[in-house]
């Protein structure tokens, strides 16, 4: 997103990151760990969305990271464009103990590339790395997939706290780098060919073209 002018007059970067992924992969828990440094086994399911933000220091620069947490269940898929339409980056989260959740990440990648374009920075996060014994998706496979789509891959655990800082700050860093590349300053809104507000949810699953199946 665009940068904010602070009262001090110093411009401050802000980065909007949306979390996407199947229900119960741990999106909200990752955020809770990142923002509050806590973990709840019985974190309630997200209905609609949640929002959190935190200041990060990246390359001696203050960056405000705004994180949007979304409802994971396929049935709420049609709401997702509201959250990702002007996001700078997406954390695509899967559960390393559940193969199907990686499949869902693949759908998200396709959808984001189609709907938002190539500018959105993608990071694939394999959550629940503490459940190593139940691992159903190998590191190598996920990393290879990430590489094939030009995304980074991070292994994380909301429970232990592993990997989350790296995932978020790494993603924010890439957003800043890509901004620099694109013109040395904050990207003016709409410069990526997205049409904010143009995504209409009225006709149901507008994202069905992605071939995503319903539960």
């Amino acid at each position: 997103m665009a940068r904010n002018k602070q009262q001090t007059g110093i411009s401050k970067e802000s980065v909007k990151i949306v979390l996407l992924g199947e229900g119960r992969v741990g999106k909200t828990s990752l955020l809770a760990r990142f923002i509050h440094n806590n973990f709840k086994e019985d974190q309630q399911a997200t209905i609609q969305a949640a929002f959190m933000s935190r200041q990060l220091q990246i390359d001696s620069q203050q960056v405000e990271v705004a994180l949007w947490d979304t409802a994971g269940q396929e049935r709420f898929h049609s709401l997702a464009p509201l959250y990702y339409r002007d996001a700078d980056a997406a954390l695509l989260v899967y559960d390393i103990s559940d193969r199907d959740t990686l499949e869902r990440v693949r759908h998200w990648v396709k959808e984001l590339r189609t709907m938002v374009g190539d500018d959105i920075v993608l990071t694939i996060v394999g959550n629940k790395s503490d459940l190593e014994r139940e691992r159903a998706v190998s590191q190598e496979e996920a990393a290879a997939f990430a590489q094939s789509i030009g995304a980074q891959h991070v292994s994380a655990s909301a429970k232990t706290g592993q990997g989350i800082e790296a995932a978020v700050s790494g993603t924010a860093q890439m957003v800043l780098a890509s901004r620099k590349r694109l013109g040395g300053s904050a990207r003016p809104p709409g410069s990526t060919g997205r049409r904010p507000g143009s995504i209409v949810i009225a006709d149901g699953p507008g994202t069905r073209t992605q071939g995503s199946s319903c539960c």
């Binding site: 229900g23 019985d42 309630q44 399911a45 539960c215």
Partner: peptide
């Protein structure tokens, strides 16, 4: 199986802060 697993995952995290549902 998928449907059942969804229900089970959500039941474990529904209103658990309420005393009525405290015991998992």
């Amino acid at each position: 199986r998928e449907r059942r697993s969804r229900v089970e995952k959500d039941v474990r995290r529904t209103d658990r802060s309420q005393p009525f549902y405290r015991a998992e």
